[in-house]
Design a protein around this nucleic acid. Structure first.
Length: 312
DNA sequence: AGCCAGGACTAAT
DNA sequence: ATTAGTCATGGC
């Protein structure tokens, strides 16, 4: 790791790390506030504006103000994670190998629980571009200002539960939440009054943690699994959304007529191993890449070549 | 124009 | 224990 000063006058550092695909990690739909800007990604982590980009040797990062040793960013990006050890636990069936070949270097982030929970409450029956829009509007309307380069326009942190709890349903609906507005409000109120203790959830066994999260109105199995996986490091949690369900059905149950959610959950828990959630994210990103739903830039995107999976 | 989106809830069998 | 209808909004 070396240090320097960046163009904006803030500190810069370099992380020497192999096997880290910044684009896949920040663009795979596990988090919604990272924006691609001129070949880099910019976001807000631990209340700081930060810019992250890929280099031949690893990652270069810059922020503004005192980086305080960069531990917050190392932790968020999961730089200490032994990725090859995790990939080694994946089943070696053809679909899984294809997914790993397509996006090796994708890491699971360690997100802040509240932001992750709130974001995925907003996610139900929404496309990722719309979720990003909703979260952006929530931050802009209710989040604390964050110091950022002047030409970026105002940048805000994601608003805390107390702020959202007092915002009122109408103000939330104005951020395009639709029927999810009362759900987000319920979550915020529960956190504020202590019915949901997000720190305590982190200490619970996964099954109990999942139940605690699902006590929130609007949080079902899928959203709870996303929060367990993306914020609490429960890497066996296996969110099954429409994409993953289609992929599992077509890749592993090609001639089953009817697949209940319970059956898919049971199969996934057994088949993908102790890092099943990690494997899930590789599958998810892979099929979306193939479907053209994520990719270099919209202009550079080739006509979606839809295989047997993930198309429409 | 119509179908679908990183779902979950409710009411009816 | 399963199933259908409903919810709000916007991309393609």
């Amino acid at each position: 790791m070396s240090s320097a000063i960046n163009a904006e006058g803030g500190p810069t550092t370099a992380f020497d790390i192999p096997d880290y695909d910044v684009d896949a990690t920040l663009g795979c739909g596990q988090a919604f506030r990272w924006e691609p800007v001129q070949g880099a990604w910019e976001g807000v982590v631990s209340g700081r504006w930060v810019r992250v980009e890929s280099t031949p040797a690893g990652i270069r990062a810059s922020c503004l103000g005192d980086p305080d040793g960069w531990g917050w960013l190392r932790h968020h990006l999961a730089l200490d994670e032994d990725l090859s050890a995790i990939l080694g636990t994946f089943p070696s069936d053809p679909p899984m190998r294809a997914a790993v070949d397509a996006c090796r270097g994708l890491r699971l982030l360690r997100q802040e629980p509240w932001e992750c929970l709130a974001s995925f409450i907003c996610s139900s029956t929404k496309q990722i571009v719309q979720i990003r829009q909703i979260v952006r509007e929530l931050a802009g309307a209710f989040g604390e200002p964050v110091v950022a380069p002047a030409d970026r326009g105002p940048v805000h942190a994601f608003p805390g539960p107390a702020t959202l709890a007092s915002a009122g349903e109408a103000a939330l609906r104005a951020c395009r939440l639709g029927f999810r507005a009362p759900y987000l409000l319920d979550a915020a109120e529960r956190v504020v009054d202590g019915r949901l203790d997000l720190e305590a959830v982190g200490r619970m066994p996964t099954v109990e943690a999942r139940e605690a999260l699902m006590s929130v109105d609007g949080v079902g199995p899928k959203v709870a699994d996303c929060v367990l996986l993306f914020a609490y490091g429960r890497q066996d949690a296996f969110p099954i959304d429409v994409w993953v369900r289609r992929a599992l059905a077509e890749l592993y149950f090609p001639k089953a007529r009817r697949l209940t959610p319970e059956r898919l959950a049971r199969f996934s828990a057994g088949h993908f191993g102790p890092y099943g959630g990690y494997a899930q994210q590789y599958l998810f990103h892979h099929i979306r890449l193939r479907a053209g739903r994520v990719g270099p830039t919209p202009a550079a995107r080739v006509t979606p070549t839809v295989g047997s999976v993930g198309g429409r």
